[in-house]
């Protein structure tokens, strides 16, 4: 069931996920489209998430934006609910931060990223070049996660509770918690059309799933659901973003993740397993959560002969 409506306020709205926004020319969503989008959200009981550009919006937009309960995803710190950064920063924030980063930068700036854990309540690290990972990169990533794990454990032992999506989400989950594009979340673009997620809009504006005038028309909508994803429904890397856009980009199917996405998610899962065990050595921690089982694979696809 659709629960969230992402509204792109400008053609240059910040990317907060795996995709890049190729648009460079500022162009605000028409006020009337914004109003109709909000109205649609109200009628369908959707939680609205506005995605902002990197400049101040005109006052008349602010009034319309505030006409409904919402959250703000912004590249500027001021009143954001979620702050989006494209590089690690020394920052003191009381809101979740999304850090979009390429693998080489993550590998080179591990300490700077780890430092952010101390100064933000939640850090979502989003790799923007997942599809380029090699076996060598996987090994490096494993070491990077181990480094983060040491830092997170230290903070937990000190009585703090930092959140790093790559490590702490899996510890706290008891089922899949993925991006939900096309299933729980849709996106409204400035042309008044709906898309599976912003990435689908930026890739091909003709690839819409309905519009404000005629409503939603998601063809094969079951394929966005976990039950229709043969690899994912056999998986317990519950923190995986299961990025629908990356799926389609790499495998041509929205319900099928690439090898790279699966291995990264499992390296994170396994690092979470170790982190959970290490924290528990210092006392009771998440007692209601089961141990994360040891597994002998990094890609569930490799175990497909055992699926029933």
């Amino acid at each position: 069931m659709i629960q969230y409506l992402i509204i792109l306020l400008d053609e240059t709205s910040a990317s907060f996920c795996h995709y890049d926004n190729p648009k460079k020319e500022r162009c605000l969503i028409p006020l009337e489209v914004l109003r109709q989008g909000i109205r649609f959200g109200m009628m369908e009981n959707l939680m609205i998430q506005y995605v902002y550009p990197d400049y101040e919006l005109p006052e008349e937009y602010k009034d319309v934006i505030e006409s409904i309960d919402h959250s703000k995803i912004k590249p500027l710190a001021d009143d954001a609910d979620v702050l989006v950064l494209d590089a690690p920063q020394e920052i003191n924030a009381d809101k979740p931060v999304v850090l979009r980063i390429k693998k080489q930068d993550l590998f080179a700036l591990t300490d700077a990223v780890a430092k952010m854990l101390k100064s933000v309540p939640r850090l979502n690290v989003v790799l923007t070049d997942v599809e380029t990972f090699t076996d060598e990169d996987f090994e490096t990533y494993k070491k990077v996660l181990a480094g983060f794990s040491t830092e997170v454990k230290k903070l937990y032992v000190e009585g703090k509770s930092p959140q790093l999506n790559l490590l702490t989400d899996r510890m706290m989950l008891s089922q899949m918690n993925n991006c939900g594009a096309g299933d729980t979340t849709i996106t409204l673009a400035s042309n008044g059309k709906f898309y599976v997620c912003p990435a689908f809009y930026y890739e091909d504006e003709a690839d819409s799933i309905g519009d404000l005038e005629h409503g939603l028309d998601i063809k094969n909508k079951q394929l966005y659901k976990l039950g229709y994803a043969p690899i994912c429904r056999h998986c317990d890397a519950w923190q995986c973003k299961r990025c629908i856009w990356l799926n389609r980009k790499t495998t041509l199917e929205v319900n099928t993740p690439s090898h790279e996405q699966c291995v990264l998610a499992h390296l994170e899962r396994n690092a979470s397993r170790e982190l959970l065990q290490n924290i528990r050595k210092h006392g009771s921690f998440l007692p209601e959560q089961e141990e994360i089982k040891e597994i002998d694979y990094l890609d569930p696809f490799d175990k497909r002969d055992t699926w029933q």
Partner: peptide, 10 residues
């Protein structure tokens, strides 16, 4: 091989 995954997990 990524493009074969949908076929082999179908």
């Amino acid at each position: 091989k990524n493009k074969l995954r949908p076929f082999l997990s179908l």
